[in-house]
Simulated assay, not measured.
Amino acid sequence: MLTGKQKRHLRSLAHHLQPIFQVGKGGTNDQLVRHIEEAIEVRELIKISVLNNCMDDPREIGAEVAEAAGAELVQVIGKTIVLYKQATEEKYRKIELPKAAAK
Rank of each mutant, 00 (worst) to 15 (best):
Thr80Trp: 00
Met55Cys: 02
Gln31Lys: 09
Val42Phe: 07
Lys91Trp: 12
Ala68Glu: 14
Val65Lys: 09
Glu96Thr: 15
Ala68Ile: 07
Thr88His: 10
Ala39Pro: 04
Met1Gly: 09
Lys85Val: 05
Arg93His: 09
Ile81Pro: 00
Ala63Cys: 01
Thr3Gln: 08
Asn53Lys: 09
Glu60Ile: 15
Gln22Leu: 08
Glu89Trp: 10
Glu41Trp: 06
Pro58Val: 08
Arg43Lys: 14
Ala100His: 12
Tyr84Ser: 07
Lys99Met: 13
Glu60His: 11
Gln86Ile: 05
Arg59Met: 10
Lys85Leu: 05
Lys7Asp: 11
Glu60Lys: 12
Tyr92Met: 04
Ser12Pro: 00
Gly78Thr: 04
His35Gly: 01
Glu64Lys: 13
Glu41Tyr: 07
Glu44Val: 05
Gly27Thr: 06
Arg43Leu: 13
His15Met: 09
Ile40Phe: 03
Thr28Asn: 05
Glu60Asn: 12
Glu37Thr: 12
Met55Ser: 10
Lys91Asn: 09
Pro58Trp: 09
Ala100Cys: 09
Asn53His: 14
Lys79Glu: 04
Cys54Leu: 08
Gln18Cys: 05
Leu83Asp: 03
Leu2Arg: 13
Lys25Asp: 01
Ala69Tyr: 13
Ser12Asn: 12
Gly70Arg: 08
Ile48Lys: 02
Pro98Asn: 15
Glu37Gln: 15
Ala71His: 11
Tyr84His: 12
Pro19Tyr: 10
Val23Cys: 00
Leu17Arg: 14
Asp57Asn: 11
Gln75Glu: 15
Ala102Ile: 15
Lys99Gly: 10
Val65Cys: 04
Ser12Gly: 01
Ala102Gln: 15
Met55Asn: 05
Met1Asp: 04
His16Ile: 11
Ala39His: 08
Glu64Phe: 11
Ala63Trp: 03
Glu64Trp: 07
Gly4Leu: 15
Tyr92Gly: 00
Thr80Tyr: 00
Gly26Glu: 12
His15Ile: 05
Gln86Ser: 07
Gly26Asn: 11
His16Trp: 13
Asn29Gly: 05
Asn29Pro: 01
Glu96Trp: 03
Pro19Trp: 08
Thr3Arg: 09
Glu90Gly: 00
Lys91Gly: 03
Asn52Gly: 04
Leu73Tyr: 10
Lys85Phe: 02
Ile20Met: 04
Glu44Phe: 03
Leu10Gly: 04
Val82His: 01
Val76Thr: 02
Asp57Phe: 05
Lys103Gly: 07
Leu51Gly: 02
Arg8Gly: 12
Ala68Phe: 07
Leu73Arg: 12
Phe21Met: 04
Asp30Arg: 15
Val23Trp: 00
Ile61Tyr: 02
Ala66His: 06
Leu45Gly: 03
Ala66Glu: 01
Lys7Gly: 07
Pro19Glu: 08
His9Cys: 10
Leu17Asp: 01
Gln18Ala: 14
Leu45Trp: 04
His9Tyr: 15
Lys85Pro: 07
Ala100Thr: 14
Glu64His: 13
Glu44Tyr: 03
Leu83Lys: 03
Thr88Met: 11
Arg59Ile: 12
Glu96Ser: 11
Glu67Leu: 14
Leu73Ser: 08
Glu38Asp: 14
Val76Ile: 04
